[in-house]
């Protein structure tokens, strides 16, 4: 087990390094740069821009710039955002809360609802409910989140005035109820897609288990159907979901770009988008590395959990 862990962590470190090289290269290959936004600002001359590029070290060769970034990274210095000169980790931290709030609440909704729909659909396969759930999931997956978000805002905020039209909280309020009120629409909109996905996974996982021999055995030995489904089928059907949950972890912290944009939610997705738009290199690299670490950790955790919960799997 320890050997396995050391091995995996070593692999992950090499992967992280590769990710950083690729990300850095691709980022700098993209046209424009951090100063492109100033190109037509009145009164700023080409000479001004050249001077600032030099001051920021943007005129050095790519390997030199990468080495500078990497060297600092090794001692835990993630650099500073080009835009507001704040340390990268601090900026990431300030966006994490909004993202966590949104993602955790929508995931809870999605898991509970998705599991229920999936299990029920599997048990009553080809029933009216199953058909409705399947069609519903397809529709939910096909609706553009952006459009759906705007429709929700239009109906519930503009027309009915039941819910706020986005934002994390009301400026000047910020009480718990205010936060909760603002959370309803975005978390439901975001959950819509995730419910669909979870229910589909759950349904197929459940179907697979139901057709296993041990379920027939359980029925044969006279267990009540409820006990068969919950104690035997459901618990086993949940196993593959651990992997999916593990893969979900990075998503939880890296945010939902579109939902965050529609509901003006200052989370990680928007941070990433803005940082790319402004070619804020240290910030983009920071967010990418942060996400990469989460992906690798999520995978590792999923594997470990899987081994712990499924006696058939041993990690060596």
């Amino acid at each position: 087990m320890t050997r396995y862990l050391v091995h995996r962590l070593g692999q992950n470190l090499i992967l992280l390094w590769l990710v950083s090289v690729i990300a850095f290269t691709v980022l700098h290959l993209a046209p424009g740069g951090p100063l492109a936004q100033f190109a037509l600002v009145p009164g700023l001359t080409q000479a001004d821009l050249a001077r600032i590029a030099h001051q920021m070290g943007l005129d050095r060769s790519l390997p030199v710039q990468y080495w500078e970034w990497f060297r600092r990274m090794l001692v835990g210095d993630w650099g500073r955002s080009y835009r507001d000169t704040q340390p990268v980790l601090l900026v990431i931290g300030s966006h994490l809360f909004a993202t966590l709030e949104l993602m955790v609440s929508s995931t809870i909704i999605a898991v509970l609802l998705g599991t229920w729909v999936g299990v029920l659909g599997a048990i009553r396969r080809y029933s009216l409910f199953d058909y409705l759930a399947t069609v519903g999931a397809m529709i939910a997956l096909s609706i553009p989140t952006f459009w759906f978000g705007l429709v929700v805002i239009y109906i519930f905020s503009v027309k009915l005035a039941w819910l706020p039209a986005g934002n994390l909280y009301t400026v000047g309020d910020g009480s718990f109820l205010d936060f909760a009120h603002h959370l309803i629409a975005p978390s439901l909109v975001l959950a819509l897609v995730t419910v669909a996905i979870w229910s589909r996974y759950m349904r197929s996982s459940m179907l697979e288990v139901i057709n296993q021999d041990y379920i027939r055995t359980a029925r044969a030995k006279g267990l009540r159907e409820r006990s068969v489904l919950i104690d035997h089928a459901f618990r086993n059907a949940l196993l593959p979901m651990i992997t999916i949950a593990g893969l979900q972890l990075p998503t939880l912290l890296s945010g939902a770009l579109v939902t965050e944009t529609v509901f003006t939610w200052p989370g990680m997705g928007r941070l990433f988008l803005d940082s790319i738009g402004y070619r804020d290199y240290p910030m983009v690299m920071g967010v990418l590395m942060f996400s990469a670490v989460l992906v690798l950790l999520g995978n590792l955790m999923a594997d470990l959990l899987y081994a712990a919960s499924d006696p058939r799997i041993r990690l060596d």
């Binding site: 997956l141 989140t145 952006f146 999916i244 890296s254 770009l257 579109v258 990433f272 738009g277």
Partner: peptide, 14 residues
């Protein structure tokens, strides 16, 4: 997971 996250950056805005 979900399509929401799979969109290309800039999609929402554009």
């Amino acid at each position: 997971m979900g399509r929401d996250r799979l969109c290309l950056p800039g999609f929402g805005r554009n």
